[in-house]
Nucleic acid binder design. Structure first.
Lengths: 349, 349
DNA sequence: GGTAGATATTCTCATGATGAGCACAAGAAA
DNA sequence: TTTCTTGTGCTCATCATGAGAATATCTACC
């Protein structure tokens, strides 16, 4: 009988940068994982309870070792601890508790560290990118599959419940699209069997899905309502899978980040010291997944006191040169909640 | 040499209710704690890695056992894991990781469970209640003590930094008061030595304060800037202390809750099925710690579609009877971010 | 019965934030 | 010089918000 203390704390980091107007994620390779499981993982490692002074120091150490990247802005996301989150628990492994962090950096060329790669965020969550309009994968794959799932519900009440949930998550049936509901969407796709992870985890015990989310509306916890016994069969495997529940963590991170953009000037963690307003806008758009009105965006960040001009110009943009701006740190003092305004918080519908 | 797995996961719950227009906290007695440390604690208990299926189930179990209260809405707050968070670690105890949760309930009379008590939230954080104007403790105790601390800074730069921080936290010197910055304020008071916990923890190693916060602006982590070697001496011990870092957790919870009120209809978790608009308003005010304009509040929740009238009236309010309202669940579908509007998110200053 | 006091409810009004778009400026390319 | 591209300044309608006047409907008391 193993001791009571068979616990392992795993620290993982969702490390985000924006380059060339694309949100990028730092991923590492895990050769040992079976193909279906997804061989990509978040940088991570266990806490050494004897040595590591703080959780964030431990995390930074693992990231440095695995990727060579030095973390600056770090924020705790969520702690995942459902049993059998890590399938190795079934084989006698320790209870794995995973503490996930969000880190924002400026993308730097990676050293010769084998296995670390910058990847496009939307390779993993392709339905989240609305910058070129409603993503085709939503129309072509997700909507019909969800409709089938809705209809498969047992009884009128379950069908209504499922439709409600699908509509709210994906902005169908009159409900507006909500860019921050990233985790809810992933969770739904997982339950319905539209992502490889749901399929992968199913044989061992469907319905015991890894759970999560910090900002969920009503503490939805784990047990997915109405999913009892739903056969996880669907012909689609959307987006690139990751190891364990790492893609779920990614979804949490994107949702949190999108929300935070609204009321905290975190975006500047991703930008160089000076930048044009269009660069700033494109960076926000990359994360938010939507296009913004240029003039209004400018008005917002300038009048909001978020940036100040440097007087210098940047040439070579193909048109009139743009002024270079810098972040105004004073804004933290003046405005309690200063963010780059994203649309969608208004009355809606 | 102890095994690598000497880790204990502690689950604690900040359980909130609002009764008689006061925010209430469910606390338990811990007789063993020394007097100075505060003998009140949050309901909590360790995770059993072999048995507990999910973290939330484990938490609910401990709460049920210690207080008899059944949890409904539960939301994860933050995971605290700095070394020596729990002083028993220094005596060979396991590394204690604490996962904190926020739970909202309707206050029910407690069973004969010894040791559990509903207490007023603001007994612990008296500077957070602005409903009757700027709290006297701010003027009389905090402001002067902070001013002394600012001036004590070594050098002009440190003084400026400290003043900036104090002003932002407590809304002085032109900066607006921000109701959500609860944790920042507690952290500052802790470092300055204005709360008993800072004093208590200091002898064992000042500067290694338990850290925390999920929504901190810039991942301020643990090492408090400019606090190196600051003597933790001050004549005041503000608010009622709690065991370990439980009051810090409480501060995190209040900040999170205040923020959430804005954009999620969580307030209804604390109210009965039907209520008058004034009851609703008083409940919000109790948590937000500020008074709201009655007519505008009504307009907001009604036009926002948050509530619907039932047609029934409540008598006995001393004046004209008020209509009873109920929460409109449909709002979750229609409006992605529906909250009771609190002031202060506008441009400010 | 009538009046004062208390609370509920409806409206108005000024101001500021937001969404949308026109018009012009200042460079590069043809 | 023309055309194209991007940057920048400005206007306008609409909606949200803060503040408060005015009215409605009850209880308590004379």
């Amino acid at each position: 009988m193993s001791a009571k203390s068979a616990i392992e704390i795993d620290l993982n980091a969702v490390i985000v940068a924006v380059t060339d107007e694309e949100p990028r994620l730092l991923a590492v390779h895990r050769g040992e994982e079976p193909e279906v499981a997804g061989d990509l993982a978040l940088p991570s490692g266990p806490l050494d309870p004897e040595k590591d002074r703080t959780l964030e120091l431990a995390l930074s150490g693992w990231v440095r070792g695995q990727t060579g990247v030095e973390l600056g802005y770090v924020e705790q996301l969520y702690t995942f601890g459902n049993r059998f989150r890590d399938p190795r628990e079934r084989l006698g492994g320790p209870r794995g508790i995973s503490i996930a962090y969000l880190a924002l950096v400026r993308e730097a060329p990676l050293g010769p560290t084998a296995g670390a790669r910058w990847m496009n965020w939307y390779d993993f969550l392709p339905w989240e990118d609305w910058r070129d309009g409603r993503p085709w994968v939503l129309e072509r794959e997700i909507a019909p599959a969800l409709e089938r799932w809705v209809r498969r519900g047992a009884g009128r009440a379950v069908v209504a419940q499922r439709r409600e949930r699908a509509d709210i998550c994906f902005g169908q049936g009159g409900a507006p699209w909500n860019g921050e509901r990233v985790h809810d969407r992933f969770e739904l796709l997982y339950e319905v069997g539209l992502v490889a992870e749901g399929y992968r985890d199913a044989p061992h015990g469907a319905g015991d899905a890894p759970h999560g989310e910090g900002d969920a509306p009503h503490g939805e916890g784990d047990a997915p309502q109405g999913a009892g016994g739903t056969p996880l069969v669907a012909a689609v495997r959307l987006g690139r899978p990751m190891a364990l529940d790492h893609r779920r963590i990614l979804a949490s991170a994107l949702g949190r980040l999108r929300g935070k953009l609204r009321y905290r000037p975190v975006i500047f963690e991703l930008l160089p010291g000076t930048f044009t307003l269009l660069q700033l806008q494109r960076t926000v758009e990359a994360l938010a997944g939507v296009r913004l009105h240029k003039q209004n965006f400018r008005r917002l960040v300038e009048q909001g006191g978020l940036v100040e001009g440097t007087g210098r110009l940047e040439a070579g943009t193909g048109g009139r040169p743009a002024e270079l701006f810098r972040f105004r740190r004073d804004v933290l003092r003046e405005r309690p909640a200063a963010g780059v305004g994203l649309p969608g918080l208004r009355s809606g519908a």
